[in-house]
């Protein structure tokens, strides 16, 4: 059992949980993820580390409530525990010697972007972070990003309720046009990563994307997480989750993410009926 030692709500549907897991905390690196199971009947789901402390022996992750498991998680707090947590999984994000880099975090992708941007800035790169959200309410971690030694933090919202009005690709394109970028990274919904990849491609600026295919074990033994990169099939969990954004087949990724949508919706509906929060 992994005791929950920290919990906070970041927006209506986004939460952060910290668990005591000293062995994992000692090894965690930016861009890596964990797999967890809430209880004995639970599904194994992947979530990226948002923060960790090797000294204090905890790890944290930030998640958006989208289905049954994340819904269950959203009801847990300090004093509860998780049945299983395993990690750190996946290859850490490459953060050294990138030069001038833009990190785009869309929606809950900001949570993953945070440790990545921090590691890149600590490694001496020139880091600009572009945060995107539908509106101010859904914007997360703005203060935490402001505390990092960034070159700039750009906030974009669909409705203009915070920062600039527009999509994350607008400032990304501006920076590409001004030849201000040696590298870029996009983390968020597949569709956003797809457009960021298209934007940078035009200017030949390399882009790393952090993919989120459906996973079961997270250790390379099932192939549920396969993604097409160039002409090759890769396993998201062990070959990734980071890949060259210009080579990824995003249409396939999005299609594969939808495979269980209908049945999962039923499971969450059943859970919601029994659950008190009636969202």
């Amino acid at each position: 059992m992994f005791p929950i030692v920290h919990q906070r709500q970041l927006s209506d549907s986004v939460f952060e949980i910290g668990v005591a897991a000293p062995a994992i905390a000692r090894k965690a690196k930016a861009g890596q993820f964990l797999m967890l199971r809430v209880d004995d009947h639970g599904e194994r789901i992947p979530l990226t580390f948002s923060d960790w402390s090797a000294e204090e022996g905890w790890i944290r992750f930030i998640f958006m409530r989208v289905g049954k498991t994340t819904h269950q998680l959203s009801h847990l707090g300090v004093g509860d525990s998780l049945a299983d947590v395993v990690g750190p999984l996946g290859i850490p994000t490459h953060t050294e010697g990138l030069g001038r880099v833009a990190v785009v975090g869309g929606g809950v992708g900001a949570a993953v972007a945070y440790p990545v941007a921090r590691a890149m800035a600590e490694a001496g790169n020139d880091v600009t972070v572009i945060l995107g959200a539908r509106n101010q309410e859904l914007l997360i971690l703005e203060d935490e990003f402001r505390a990092l030694p960034l070159k700039e933090l750009i906030v974009m919202t669909d409705d203009g309720s915070a920062g600039e009005k527009g999509l994350v690709t607008a400032p990304l394109k501006r920076m590409c046009e001004a030849a201000e970028l040696d590298h870029s990274m996009a983390i968020g919904p597949a569709i956003m990563m797809k457009f960021c990849a298209a934007t940078t491609k035009e200017f030949n600026v390399p882009i790393t994307v952090s993919l989120n295919p459906i996973m079961v074990d997270g250790t390379g033994m099932c192939g549920a997480c396969r993604v097409s990169v160039g002409s090759e099939t890769k396993f998201g969990c062990v070959d990734g989750p980071d890949f060259d954004g210009h080579a990824v087949d995003f249409e396939e990724l999005m299609s594969r993410q939808r495979v269980y949508t209908d049945i999962e919706r039923e499971a969450d509906a059943d859970f919601s009926r029994e659950c008190s929060c009636h969202r």
Binding site: A23, I24, K27, D84, V85, V86, G87, P88, L89, T219
Partner: peptide
């Protein structure tokens, strides 16, 4: 359980 050798240790 929940220890991936090569990752956790």
């Amino acid at each position: 359980t929940n220890v991936v050798v090569g990752a956790t240790y």
